[in-house]
Design a protein around this nucleic acid. Structure first.
Length: 432
RNA sequence: GUGGCCGUAGCUCAGUUGGUUAGAGCGCCAGGUUGUGAUCCUGGAUGUCGGGGGUUCGAAUCCCCUCGGUCACCCCA
């Protein structure tokens, strides 16, 4: 056998039919939820001017080292999107739709980092954004959509944590104190965190290094710096979640990777997955991003859920299994005529999933294929059926009686000969 | 991006201190049944041992590089 000349690129996946079906169902369920909530789908391009994504914050790893950038033949500096939010905001700034603009999306995003299970260089996300209102009820609505979606697919072990990053001025005051705190305790910080503290002190807070744990635990808390508007907004979010019966935990040290967030942020973790890659969704408010892209002063809020990780979590919980979408009927013919073409067409037109073999294989080989296909019924046309205008209908789900002799008589309990014109009705009744 | 572990047939894996032509189970194909799927029996095809280079009389086995996977970190979905 020949050897494959190429293989898929690191961190990309080849997805086969049953898994692809499952993904499509997942997206369908999500689409249903967001549509009920009045969100319209948008399909932005997969690449943008690199500047669109640089607005996410030069200090974030997503921008500084994980961007898939390239120069096209026209000399344009482009990047594959690392997420959708920036593209959606660019889209808003360019077209200025009426606010509040409520949209959802699905598709692949790209990040150049070392792959491992649940973390890929090309990965699928589903998400939603609302641009044009700072009403915290929208934050609640978005979280509720996520929550309902997880429930719809049967995921149980999902925990929600929330925090408020405050408004820009709040955060500026906090960052100043935090930075000087880290500076004062530099000797107790890991080298890496010390470096991070100079670029973006917020992110030191979610360092997983044990060495940092103590310093982080005693660090000033953002909640103490919230101004009146941010604090009220956050209170409203907590009230709303409680009202809707959505369990949550306030995590004072929760921060998010991208620099644009402010006020409410939230994260969903699948507790049945290993901690390193257990984030199955997250989002929050970004009140400066649209403006940074020239869209005017418009607040925004949104979330993204990771399709790959949600499916991994489903596997861990044994929920949302792949469903069988194989053929219901298999057509077997040994004539050299056009019966297979006609019968398959007739069955498919009548709404059945119908398959057949190709290549003029023996009846035995075709019956094996029928069995393997998972079909419930085989429709058989040999010479005698072809001459008499009939078909043999054979039920496949039961084992054939031992010693059954091949015979066109149809005497066996699970095989009968009927007029071809009665085939569709017979198949329908057998399948119901 | 940094570090650890791993890579033998379509799949799961065996292969002794380097030693003839690299194996098993499952799966696949064909026949036993020239018109019939489970099971059973018989036979068959797989592979540059991830790729490249080196050491050696001789490499799946040892060394280097590289590609891919996986785990941890960084970070995130």
């Amino acid at each position: 056998m020949a050897r494959a000349l190429f293989q898929s690129q690191s961190g990309t996946q080849d997805i086969f039919p049953s898994e692809a079906d499952r993904r499509r169902r997942l997206v369908d369920i999500f689409a249903e939820e967001v549509t009920k909530a009045g969100y319209g789908q948008v399909i932005p391009p997969m690449f943008e001017d690199v500047g669109v994504f640089q607005r996410l914050g030069e200090a974030s790893d997503v921008v500084s080292k994980e961007l898939y950038s390239f120069v096209d033949q026209g000399g344009r500096n482009l990047s594959l999107r690392p997420e959708f939010t920036a593209s959606v905001c660019r889209m808003f700034a360019q077209h200025r739709p009426l606010v509040p603009w409520k949209v959802w999306y699905t598709g692949p995003s790209f990040r150049q980092e070392r792959p491992q299970k649940g973390r890929y260089r090309q990965f699928d996300q589903i998400g939603a954004e609302v641009i044009g209102t700072d009403d915290p009820d929208v934050d609640i609505e978005l979280i509720a959509i996520c929550w309902r979606f997880y429930q719809q697919i049967g995921l149980k072990n999902v925990s929600l944590v929330i925090n408020s990053l405050g408004d820009f001025e709040d955060r500026a005051r906090y960052l100043e104190d935090l930075q000087s705190y880290f500076k004062a305790n530099a000797d107790q910080l890991s080298e890496q965190s010390l470096k991070t503290s100079e670029i973006n002190p917020l992110r030191v807070l979610d360092s997983k290094r044990p060495a940092d744990a103590d310093v982080i635990a005693k660090a000033p808390v953002l909640a103490d710096y919230l101004g009146e508007p941010a604090a009220m907004s956050f209170e409203r979010v907590k009230l709303g979640l409680t009202t809707l019966g959505i369990p949550f935990e306030v995590a004072p040290r929760l921060v998010r990777g991208l620099d644009y967030y402010g006020r409410t942020i939230f994260e969903f973790a699948a507790t049945s997955l290993d901690a390193a890659q257990n984030a199955v969704g997250g989002g929050g408010r970004y009140d400066g991003l649209v403006e940074a892209l020239g869209g005017g002063s418009q607040p925004g809020v949104g979330f993204a859920l990771g399709v790959d990780r949600i499916l991994l979590a489903c596997d861990a919980e044994g929920v949302f299994d792949a469903v069988d979408s194989g053929p219901q009927v298999w057509v077997v013919t040994t004539t050299q005529g056009t019966e297979a073409l006609e019968i398959v067409e007739e069955l498919q037109t009548a709404g059945f999933r119908a398959g057949r073999s190709f290549g003029g294989r023996s009846m035995k080989a075709q019956m094996k294929a029928a069995n393997r296909s998972g079909a419930d019924i085989a429709v058989i046309v040999g010479e005698s059926e072809a001459e008499s205008g009939s078909v043999s209908i054979r039920q496949l789900r039961t084992a054939p009686p031992s010693g059954e002799v091949s015979s066109p008589s149809g005497s066996a309990s699970q095989q009968t000969v009927i007029e071809r014109t009665a085939m569709v009705e017979k198949v329908r009744s057998l399948l119901s």
